[in-house]
Write a protein that binds this DNA or RNA. Structure first.
Lengths: 193, 193
DNA sequence: ATGTTAAAATGACCACAGTCACTAGTTGAC
DNA sequence: GTCAACTAGTGACTGTGGTCATTTTAACAT
Protein backbone atom coordinates (compact mmCIF):
# COMPACT_ATOMS: atom_id res chain seq x y z
CA UNK A 1 0.00 0.00 0.00
CA UNK A 2 1.43 3.29 -1.14
CA UNK A 3 -0.64 5.24 1.32
CA UNK A 4 1.26 3.90 4.27
CA UNK A 5 4.60 4.69 2.68
CA UNK A 6 3.68 8.30 2.18
CA UNK A 7 2.46 8.62 5.74
CA UNK A 8 5.68 7.26 7.16
CA UNK A 9 7.65 9.55 4.92
CA UNK A 10 5.74 12.62 6.02
CA UNK A 11 5.99 11.70 9.68
CA UNK A 12 9.72 11.41 9.28
CA UNK A 13 9.85 14.75 7.50
CA UNK A 14 7.91 16.45 10.25
CA UNK A 15 10.11 14.83 12.87
CA UNK A 16 13.39 15.83 11.23
CA UNK A 17 12.30 19.37 10.48
CA UNK A 18 11.03 19.79 14.03
CA UNK A 19 14.30 18.64 15.54
CA UNK A 20 16.22 20.88 13.21
CA UNK A 21 14.14 23.89 14.20
CA UNK A 22 14.25 23.03 17.89
CA UNK A 23 18.02 22.89 17.73
CA UNK A 24 18.24 26.21 15.99
CA UNK A 25 15.70 28.24 17.93
CA UNK A 26 14.90 26.21 21.03
CA UNK A 27 11.82 24.12 21.67
CA UNK A 28 9.74 26.87 23.23
CA UNK A 29 10.49 29.32 20.45
CA UNK A 30 9.25 27.08 17.68
CA UNK A 31 5.49 27.04 17.27
CA UNK A 32 3.65 24.16 15.67
CA UNK A 33 2.59 26.59 12.99
CA UNK A 34 6.26 27.27 12.19
CA UNK A 35 6.98 23.57 11.90
CA UNK A 36 3.96 23.03 9.72
CA UNK A 37 4.77 25.82 7.30
CA UNK A 38 8.40 24.66 7.17
CA UNK A 39 7.08 21.27 6.05
CA UNK A 40 4.63 22.82 3.61
CA UNK A 41 1.59 21.52 5.48
CA UNK A 42 -1.18 23.05 7.55
CA UNK A 43 -1.09 23.17 11.33
CA UNK A 44 -3.87 20.65 11.67
CA UNK A 45 -1.92 18.10 9.67
CA UNK A 46 0.89 18.15 12.20
CA UNK A 47 -1.55 16.86 14.80
CA UNK A 48 -2.54 14.01 12.52
CA UNK A 49 0.98 12.69 13.00
CA UNK A 50 1.89 13.73 16.52
CA UNK A 51 -0.94 14.05 19.03
CA UNK A 52 0.96 16.73 20.94
CA UNK A 53 3.95 18.91 20.21
CA UNK A 54 5.93 17.15 22.92
CA UNK A 55 5.46 13.79 21.21
CA UNK A 56 8.15 14.78 18.76
CA UNK A 57 10.55 14.66 21.69
CA UNK A 58 9.24 11.31 22.86
CA UNK A 59 9.85 9.99 19.39
CA UNK A 60 13.44 11.12 19.71
CA UNK A 61 13.66 9.36 23.06
CA UNK A 62 12.45 6.10 21.62
CA UNK A 63 15.32 6.14 19.17
CA UNK A 64 17.68 5.83 22.13
CA UNK A 65 16.02 2.55 23.00
CA UNK A 66 16.70 1.22 19.55
CA UNK A 67 20.32 2.15 20.13
CA UNK A 68 20.42 0.14 23.35
CA UNK A 69 19.03 -2.92 21.64
CA UNK A 70 21.65 -2.64 18.95
CA UNK A 71 24.46 -2.36 21.46
CA UNK A 72 23.23 -5.34 23.43
CA UNK A 73 23.26 -7.49 20.33
CA UNK A 74 26.44 -6.34 18.66
CA UNK A 75 28.70 -5.72 21.62
CA UNK A 76 29.61 -9.21 22.70
CA UNK A 77 31.62 -9.16 25.84
CA UNK A 78 32.57 -11.63 28.48
CA UNK A 79 32.25 -9.14 31.28
CA UNK A 80 28.72 -8.04 32.01
CA UNK A 81 29.78 -5.02 33.98
CA UNK A 82 31.74 -3.56 31.11
CA UNK A 83 28.87 -4.34 28.78
CA UNK A 84 26.40 -2.44 30.92
CA UNK A 85 28.90 0.32 31.35
CA UNK A 86 29.38 0.46 27.61
CA UNK A 87 25.64 0.76 27.00
CA UNK A 88 25.27 3.72 29.26
CA UNK A 89 28.46 5.39 28.06
CA UNK A 90 27.08 5.17 24.57
CA UNK A 91 23.75 6.62 25.62
CA UNK A 92 25.39 9.46 27.45
CA UNK A 93 27.61 10.16 24.48
CA UNK A 94 24.68 10.77 22.14
CA UNK A 95 23.25 12.79 24.95
CA UNK A 96 26.21 15.10 25.24
CA UNK A 97 26.05 15.87 21.55
CA UNK A 98 22.75 17.69 21.60
CA UNK A 99 22.49 18.35 25.27
CA UNK A 100 19.75 20.96 25.30
CA UNK A 101 17.42 18.95 23.19
CA UNK A 102 17.93 15.73 25.04
CA UNK A 103 17.48 17.51 28.33
CA UNK A 104 13.99 18.31 27.13
CA UNK A 105 13.56 14.79 25.86
CA UNK A 106 14.41 13.33 29.24
CA UNK A 107 12.13 15.73 30.96
CA UNK A 108 9.27 14.88 28.62
CA UNK A 109 10.00 11.17 28.88
CA UNK A 110 9.74 11.27 32.64
CA UNK A 111 6.74 13.55 32.49
CA UNK A 112 4.89 11.30 30.13
CA UNK A 113 5.87 8.27 32.15
CA UNK A 114 4.28 9.84 35.19
CA UNK A 115 1.23 10.69 33.13
CA UNK A 116 1.16 7.09 31.89
CA UNK A 117 1.14 8.39 28.34
CA UNK A 118 4.24 6.72 27.04
CA UNK A 119 6.21 3.62 27.89
CA UNK A 120 9.72 4.60 26.85
CA UNK A 121 11.25 4.10 30.27
CA UNK A 122 9.45 0.82 30.72
CA UNK A 123 10.79 -0.44 27.40
CA UNK A 124 14.32 0.56 28.30
CA UNK A 125 14.09 -1.22 31.64
CA UNK A 126 12.58 -4.32 30.06
CA UNK A 127 15.31 -4.48 27.46
CA UNK A 128 17.96 -4.41 30.15
CA UNK A 129 16.06 -6.93 32.25
CA UNK A 130 16.05 -9.37 29.38
CA UNK A 131 19.77 -8.95 29.03
CA UNK A 132 20.35 -9.70 32.71
CA UNK A 133 18.10 -12.76 32.63
CA UNK A 134 20.08 -14.00 29.67
CA UNK A 135 23.37 -13.36 31.40
CA UNK A 136 22.15 -15.16 34.50
CA UNK A 137 21.10 -18.17 32.48
CA UNK A 138 24.39 -18.42 30.66
CA UNK A 139 26.22 -18.04 33.95
CA UNK A 140 27.88 -14.81 32.95
CA UNK A 141 26.37 -13.01 35.85
CA UNK A 142 25.31 -13.67 39.40
CA UNK A 143 23.49 -11.54 41.89
CA UNK A 144 21.37 -11.83 44.99
CA UNK A 145 18.89 -9.38 43.49
CA UNK A 146 16.37 -9.90 40.77
CA UNK A 147 17.02 -8.65 37.23
CA UNK A 148 14.06 -6.33 37.16
CA UNK A 149 15.13 -4.46 40.26
CA UNK A 150 18.68 -4.23 39.00
CA UNK A 151 17.66 -2.80 35.65
CA UNK A 152 15.34 -0.40 37.33
CA UNK A 153 18.11 0.85 39.59
CA UNK A 154 20.44 1.30 36.64
CA UNK A 155 17.90 3.21 34.62
CA UNK A 156 17.28 5.31 37.70
CA UNK A 157 20.95 6.11 37.98
CA UNK A 158 21.04 6.99 34.33
CA UNK A 159 18.27 9.54 34.57
CA UNK A 160 19.58 10.73 37.87
CA UNK A 161 23.02 11.44 36.44
CA UNK A 162 21.44 13.53 33.75
CA UNK A 163 19.49 15.47 36.32
CA UNK A 164 22.50 15.87 38.59
CA UNK A 165 24.54 17.05 35.66
CA UNK A 166 21.93 19.59 34.65
CA UNK A 167 21.89 20.87 38.19
CA UNK A 168 25.62 21.31 38.50
CA UNK A 169 26.60 24.90 37.92
CA UNK A 170 29.70 24.00 36.02
CA UNK A 171 28.96 22.40 32.68
CA UNK A 172 32.62 21.43 32.69
CA UNK A 173 31.89 18.80 35.27
CA UNK A 174 31.74 15.79 33.09
CA UNK A 175 28.50 13.92 32.69
CA UNK A 176 30.38 10.69 32.35
CA UNK A 177 32.22 11.24 35.62
CA UNK A 178 28.97 11.84 37.43
CA UNK A 179 27.48 8.70 35.99
CA UNK A 180 30.58 6.65 36.71
CA UNK A 181 30.69 7.52 40.38
CA UNK A 182 27.03 6.68 40.82
CA UNK A 183 27.46 3.55 38.78
CA UNK A 184 30.33 2.32 40.94
CA UNK A 185 28.21 2.64 44.05
CA UNK A 186 25.24 0.72 42.75
CA UNK A 187 27.25 -1.89 40.92
CA UNK A 188 28.93 -2.71 44.17
CA UNK A 189 25.46 -3.57 45.45
CA UNK A 190 24.30 -5.33 42.32
CA UNK A 191 27.23 -7.73 42.34
CA UNK A 192 26.40 -9.00 45.79
CA UNK A 193 26.08 -12.77 45.51
CA UNK B 1 5.84 45.95 58.20
CA UNK B 2 2.27 44.99 57.63
CA UNK B 3 2.72 44.86 53.90
CA UNK B 4 4.93 41.78 54.06
CA UNK B 5 2.52 39.99 56.36
CA UNK B 6 -0.34 40.44 53.98
CA UNK B 7 1.72 39.21 51.06
CA UNK B 8 2.70 36.02 52.83
CA UNK B 9 -0.87 35.50 53.86
CA UNK B 10 -2.17 35.90 50.34
CA UNK B 11 0.48 33.64 48.88
CA UNK B 12 -0.53 30.97 51.33
CA UNK B 13 -4.17 31.49 50.44
CA UNK B 14 -3.48 31.13 46.76
CA UNK B 15 -1.38 28.06 47.40
CA UNK B 16 -3.97 26.31 49.54
CA UNK B 17 -6.90 27.13 47.29
CA UNK B 18 -4.94 25.96 44.26
CA UNK B 19 -4.10 22.63 45.84
CA UNK B 20 -7.68 22.20 46.93
CA UNK B 21 -8.95 22.85 43.42
CA UNK B 22 -6.28 20.68 41.81
CA UNK B 23 -7.29 17.79 44.06
CA UNK B 24 -10.94 18.21 43.23
CA UNK B 25 -10.80 18.78 39.49
CA UNK B 26 -7.28 17.84 38.41
CA UNK B 27 -4.43 20.19 37.61
CA UNK B 28 -5.19 20.53 33.91
CA UNK B 29 -8.85 21.26 34.52
CA UNK B 30 -8.24 24.19 36.80
CA UNK B 31 -7.39 27.41 35.02
CA UNK B 32 -5.46 30.20 36.65
CA UNK B 33 -8.55 32.33 36.20
CA UNK B 34 -10.54 29.82 38.26
CA UNK B 35 -7.97 29.91 41.03
CA UNK B 36 -7.89 33.68 41.00
CA UNK B 37 -11.62 34.11 41.19
CA UNK B 38 -11.80 31.48 43.94
CA UNK B 39 -9.37 33.65 45.89
CA UNK B 40 -11.23 36.82 45.05
CA UNK B 41 -8.35 38.30 43.08
CA UNK B 42 -7.66 39.02 39.41
CA UNK B 43 -5.74 36.67 37.19
CA UNK B 44 -2.77 39.02 36.95
CA UNK B 45 -2.40 39.01 40.72
CA UNK B 46 -1.83 35.28 40.74
CA UNK B 47 1.27 35.83 38.66
CA UNK B 48 2.58 38.36 41.16
CA UNK B 49 2.89 35.48 43.60
CA UNK B 50 3.73 32.50 41.42
CA UNK B 51 5.63 33.20 38.18
CA UNK B 52 4.02 30.20 36.50
CA UNK B 53 1.06 27.99 37.25
CA UNK B 54 3.38 25.04 37.79
CA UNK B 55 5.25 26.88 40.55
CA UNK B 56 2.39 26.09 42.88
CA UNK B 57 3.43 22.47 42.54
CA UNK B 58 7.08 23.27 43.13
CA UNK B 59 6.06 25.05 46.29
CA UNK B 60 4.35 21.87 47.39
CA UNK B 61 7.54 19.96 46.61
CA UNK B 62 9.65 22.25 48.71
CA UNK B 63 7.50 21.46 51.72
CA UNK B 64 8.76 17.89 51.48
CA UNK B 65 12.27 19.16 52.00
CA UNK B 66 11.24 20.87 55.19
CA UNK B 67 9.86 17.53 56.29
CA UNK B 68 13.20 15.84 55.66
CA UNK B 69 15.07 18.40 57.71
CA UNK B 70 12.65 17.89 60.56
CA UNK B 71 13.08 14.15 60.47
CA UNK B 72 16.85 14.38 60.41
CA UNK B 73 16.85 16.53 63.52
CA UNK B 74 14.16 14.84 65.59
CA UNK B 75 14.69 11.20 64.71
CA UNK B 76 17.81 10.35 66.63
CA UNK B 77 18.99 6.90 65.85
CA UNK B 78 22.16 4.92 66.31
CA UNK B 79 21.82 3.17 63.00
CA UNK B 80 22.28 5.38 59.97
CA UNK B 81 20.68 2.92 57.60
CA UNK B 82 17.44 2.85 59.51
CA UNK B 83 17.52 6.61 59.76
CA UNK B 84 17.84 7.04 56.02
CA UNK B 85 15.24 4.39 55.51
CA UNK B 86 12.95 6.20 57.89
CA UNK B 87 13.35 9.48 56.01
CA UNK B 88 12.35 8.00 52.72
CA UNK B 89 9.54 5.93 54.18
CA UNK B 90 8.13 9.10 55.62
CA UNK B 91 8.44 10.93 52.30
CA UNK B 92 6.77 8.11 50.45
CA UNK B 93 3.99 8.02 53.00
CA UNK B 94 2.99 11.63 52.40
CA UNK B 95 3.30 10.80 48.76
CA UNK B 96 0.84 7.95 48.87
CA UNK B 97 -1.75 10.16 50.48
CA UNK B 98 -2.31 12.46 47.55
CA UNK B 99 -0.74 10.39 44.83
CA UNK B 100 -2.09 12.15 41.75
CA UNK B 101 -1.01 15.55 42.89
CA UNK B 102 2.43 14.50 43.98
CA UNK B 103 2.92 12.65 40.76
CA UNK B 104 2.58 16.00 39.07
CA UNK B 105 4.80 17.60 41.67
CA UNK B 106 7.57 15.13 41.00
CA UNK B 107 7.21 15.59 37.31
CA UNK B 108 7.40 19.36 37.63
CA UNK B 109 10.28 19.14 40.07
CA UNK B 110 12.32 17.09 37.64
CA UNK B 111 11.23 19.22 34.74
CA UNK B 112 12.22 22.42 36.45
CA UNK B 113 15.47 20.89 37.60
CA UNK B 114 16.31 20.12 34.00
CA UNK B 115 15.33 23.63 33.03
CA UNK B 116 17.51 24.94 35.85
CA UNK B 117 14.54 26.87 37.16
CA UNK B 118 14.31 25.44 40.62
CA UNK B 119 16.70 23.87 43.06
CA UNK B 120 14.43 21.56 45.02
CA UNK B 121 16.31 18.41 44.16
CA UNK B 122 19.62 20.05 44.87
CA UNK B 123 18.44 21.15 48.28
CA UNK B 124 17.21 17.69 49.11
CA UNK B 125 20.52 16.16 48.09
CA UNK B 126 22.51 18.75 50.02
CA UNK B 127 20.48 18.17 53.14
CA UNK B 128 21.21 14.46 52.99
CA UNK B 129 24.86 15.09 52.20
CA UNK B 130 25.22 17.16 55.35
CA UNK B 131 23.71 14.37 57.34
CA UNK B 132 26.17 11.85 55.94
CA UNK B 133 29.14 14.12 56.56
CA UNK B 134 27.97 14.49 60.11
CA UNK B 135 27.57 10.77 60.52
CA UNK B 136 31.02 10.16 59.11
CA UNK B 137 32.57 12.64 61.50
CA UNK B 138 30.90 11.14 64.53
CA UNK B 139 31.93 7.70 63.37
CA UNK B 140 28.37 6.50 62.96
CA UNK B 141 28.95 5.69 59.37
CA UNK B 142 31.70 4.54 57.07
CA UNK B 143 31.87 4.20 53.33
CA UNK B 144 34.37 4.09 50.52
CA UNK B 145 32.25 6.56 48.58
CA UNK B 146 31.82 10.24 49.12
CA UNK B 147 28.72 11.65 50.82
CA UNK B 148 27.61 13.69 47.85
CA UNK B 149 27.56 10.73 45.50
CA UNK B 150 25.76 8.63 48.07
CA UNK B 151 23.03 11.20 48.62
CA UNK B 152 22.67 11.68 44.94
CA UNK B 153 22.20 7.98 44.39
CA UNK B 154 19.62 7.80 47.14
CA UNK B 155 17.65 10.73 45.81
CA UNK B 156 17.83 9.10 42.42
CA UNK B 157 16.40 5.89 43.79
CA UNK B 158 13.66 7.85 45.46
CA UNK B 159 12.49 9.53 42.30
CA UNK B 160 13.03 6.37 40.38
CA UNK B 161 10.78 4.38 42.68
CA UNK B 162 8.05 6.91 42.17
CA UNK B 163 8.45 6.67 38.43
CA UNK B 164 8.58 2.88 38.50
CA UNK B 165 5.51 2.82 40.65
CA UNK B 166 3.63 5.10 38.30
CA UNK B 167 4.56 2.85 35.43
CA UNK B 168 3.41 -0.35 37.06
CA UNK B 169 -0.01 -1.30 35.81
CA UNK B 170 -1.17 -2.52 39.16
CA UNK B 171 -1.51 0.29 41.68
CA UNK B 172 -1.72 -2.50 44.24
CA UNK B 173 1.98 -3.05 43.88
CA UNK B 174 3.19 -1.20 46.89
CA UNK B 175 5.31 1.88 46.43
CA UNK B 176 7.19 1.06 49.59
CA UNK B 177 8.07 -2.40 48.35
CA UNK B 178 9.43 -0.97 45.13
CA UNK B 179 11.54 1.52 47.02
CA UNK B 180 12.74 -1.07 49.51
CA UNK B 181 14.03 -3.45 46.90
CA UNK B 182 15.92 -0.68 45.13
CA UNK B 183 17.16 0.65 48.43
CA UNK B 184 18.55 -2.72 49.46
CA UNK B 185 20.58 -2.92 46.27
CA UNK B 186 22.16 0.48 46.55
CA UNK B 187 22.69 0.36 50.28
CA UNK B 188 24.70 -2.78 49.76
CA UNK B 189 27.00 -0.66 47.61
CA UNK B 190 26.97 2.37 49.86
CA UNK B 191 28.11 0.42 52.88
CA UNK B 192 31.23 -0.77 51.11
CA UNK B 193 34.14 0.21 53.33
C1' DA C 1 -4.92 66.59 56.13
C1' DT C 2 -2.21 66.59 51.87
C1' DG C 3 1.23 65.29 48.69
C1' DT C 4 4.63 61.96 47.12
C1' DT C 5 6.27 57.66 45.96
C1' DA C 6 6.64 52.95 45.68
C1' DA C 7 4.29 48.48 45.71
C1' DA C 8 0.51 45.71 44.46
C1' DA C 9 -3.81 44.72 41.77
C1' DT C 10 -5.96 44.68 37.54
C1' DG C 11 -7.92 42.98 33.14
C1' DA C 12 -7.53 43.81 28.22
C1' DC C 13 -4.45 41.74 25.36
C1' DC C 14 -1.40 38.33 22.86
C1' DA C 15 0.57 33.95 21.32
C1' DC C 16 0.07 29.46 20.82
C1' DA C 17 -1.44 24.39 21.58
C1' DG C 18 -4.91 21.71 20.38
C1' DT C 19 -9.93 20.80 18.18
C1' DC C 20 -13.19 19.93 14.68
C1' DA C 21 -16.41 20.48 11.00
C1' DC C 22 -15.50 20.63 6.49
C1' DT C 23 -13.00 19.96 1.98
C1' DA C 24 -9.94 17.52 -1.19
C1' DG C 25 -7.86 13.41 -2.59
C1' DT C 26 -7.45 8.33 -3.01
C1' DT C 27 -8.98 3.70 -3.51
C1' DG C 28 -11.52 0.08 -5.11
C1' DA C 29 -16.08 -1.90 -6.83
C1' DC C 30 -18.99 -2.13 -10.61
C1' DG D 1 -15.53 6.10 -16.44
C1' DT D 2 -18.55 6.72 -12.41
C1' DC D 3 -19.87 6.42 -7.87
C1' DA D 4 -19.41 5.48 -3.06
C1' DA D 5 -16.67 5.17 0.97
C1' DC D 6 -12.96 6.16 3.29
C1' DT D 7 -8.59 8.68 4.42
C1' DA D 8 -5.84 12.67 4.85
C1' DG D 9 -5.48 17.78 4.81
C1' DT D 10 -7.14 22.19 6.25
C1' DG D 11 -7.53 26.57 8.80
C1' DA D 12 -10.96 29.17 11.44
C1' DC D 13 -11.92 28.79 16.18
C1' DT D 14 -11.43 28.12 21.24
C1' DG D 15 -9.40 28.06 25.81
C1' DT D 16 -5.70 29.16 28.54
C1' DG D 17 -1.05 30.61 30.19
C1' DG D 18 1.39 34.51 30.61
C1' DT D 19 2.39 39.89 29.80
C1' DC D 20 2.13 44.67 30.63
C1' DA D 21 0.52 49.44 30.66
C1' DT D 22 -2.49 51.46 33.70
C1' DT D 23 -4.94 52.16 38.02
C1' DT D 24 -5.49 51.53 42.94
C1' DT D 25 -3.80 51.20 47.41
C1' DA D 26 -0.62 51.63 51.23
C1' DA D 27 3.23 53.93 53.58
C1' DC D 28 5.38 57.59 55.03
C1' DA D 29 6.87 62.71 55.16
C1' DT D 30 5.62 67.28 55.96
Amino acid sequence: MLREERKKELKKDIFLKSIELFKEYGYENVSVEKIASACGIAKGTFFNYFPKKEHVLLHLGSSQIVLVKEIIQTHQCSNIKSKVHHIFRELLATYSQHADLLKLTISETIRSALKAESANILTLTDTLTDMFIDAKNTGLFQSAFDPKTISSVLVGIYFNSLITWSLSESPDEDLEIIFNSQFEVVWEGIEKK
